[in-house]
Simulated scan of single mutants.
Amino acid sequence: MTNSLMKALFLKKPYKLELKNTNIPVLSQGEVLIKVNAVALCGTDIHAYHGKQGLFEYPRIIGHEISGEIVEMNAKQKKLRIGDRVAIIPYINCGHCISCNKEIYGACENLKVVGVHQAGGLAEFIKIPVDNLVKLPQNIDNLNGALVEPLAISTHAVRKANPKSDENILIVGMGPIGLGAAEIAKTFGANVILADLSEERRDFVSKRFDYKNILNPLAVDYRKQLAELTDGNMPDTIIDTTGSNKSMESCFKYLSYGGKVVYVGIYNGDLVIDDIEFHKRQTRLFGSRAAQKTDFEYVIGCIGKGLVKPEKFITDKLEFDQNIVKNINLVMDKGLSAFKTLIIFK
């Protein structure tokens, strides 16, 4: 490229963002240079901003929910070309550990995440391995393209449960991943029940989406409500996205016999479960991390068919300009009311 510098937003340390010029990445073999079109802020970015993301390495260009356009290639392949718009798969696996050999790439022993362990998307350009790109069709715009990644995380969790039509799924935690799981579960024909402690979150979802069964897990009749909604059988699957040990430990007593539990949110510590409740149900327990390329492709198909509408998640839009530090600081202070923030590049 004629210009060797780009603008990038660095998280220098907790609460300290800095917009500065830095070198445009130089491509190695197998890599592609992407002009960033849009980035969605994720819980990972927010936790890193507040100093509560244990895996994060400072300083770092943040952002891993990214859509962009290919502007340079150093890779031999036939599916993509310069000018294609793409969604980025931000998980860089080693390709040779036991998990990669099993094609379970999200469990790679040496997994690196864009925007956490290496430079992220809040920059004018980013380099990515060509295998970590999924082409966006014309009917998916740049903003929706940036939301493919969180929806792929949700899809991966739902696919772990592999629900059948008319199964009852309880999704605990109504943040973007939990709500995304609800939207994806509906494409499987599942009956979705949502639960969240936050009245603000419950109100947001009830106003923007068409879910009838939105519960407060602290309600004294919570178990009774679940029983009534499932003909007394309790949910066939519980997907817990909270990362709360209390929520994760309590799942089993609200589960149907022969049911499944999927942990998506991560708790940094030990979990203590009631083994009697776990065993007598012959519970199937899954951990869900990251997403596969097939999950990204499924999401793109759902958006293209109008089955999932990511734009309904968006509450805030910012431009990547000289005011970006001030504006992101303001969004970070909004708390739950900033459900999904998109940064738009010119």
Rank of each mutant, 00 (worst) to 15 (best):
F313D: 08
K280H: 15
C251A: 06
M248N: 02
Q225A: 13
I266D: 01
D240P: 04
H279L: 08
G259M: 12
V308E: 02
I314A: 12
D275H: 07
D275S: 11
V308M: 05
I239Y: 00
K309A: 02
K293L: 07
S256G: 15
K260L: 08
D240Y: 00
L226M: 12
D240Q: 02
A291I: 07
R289S: 03
D274P: 02
I303A: 08
Y263L: 15
D270Q: 06
E249C: 03
D240N: 08
Y263N: 09
E311R: 13
S256W: 08
T230Q: 13
F252D: 00
K312F: 04
T283F: 05
V262P: 00
Q282L: 07
Q282D: 07
V308N: 04
R289L: 01
G258R: 14
T283L: 06
I239C: 03
V262A: 00
T294G: 04
T241P: 07
C302E: 07
S256P: 10
T294H: 07
K280L: 13
R223L: 12
Q292C: 05
K309W: 00
K305H: 01
P235D: 12
F286T: 03
G243N: 02
G301F: 05
S288H: 04
S247T: 06
L229A: 10
I314G: 12
S250W: 03
V264P: 01
V308G: 04
V261T: 03
T315P: 10
K224V: 11
D274H: 01
A290V: 11
V261E: 00
T237I: 15
T242Y: 06
T294F: 07
S250D: 10
A290H: 10
H279R: 11
V262N: 00
Y298H: 14
I239R: 06
E311D: 14
C251N: 15
K246M: 02
I314V: 15
F286I: 06
R284A: 10
K309T: 05
K280T: 13
G306P: 05
V264T: 14
K246N: 05
G306Y: 05
A291Y: 15
V299Q: 06
K312P: 01
Q282V: 06
L255F: 09
G269V: 02
D231A: 15
R223S: 12
I273L: 14
I303D: 07
C251T: 10
E228V: 09
S250T: 05
K309Y: 02
V299H: 08
G265K: 13
Y257A: 13
V308K: 06
I300H: 09
G265M: 12
H279Q: 10
Y257G: 13
N268E: 10
S244C: 03
K224R: 12
D275E: 08
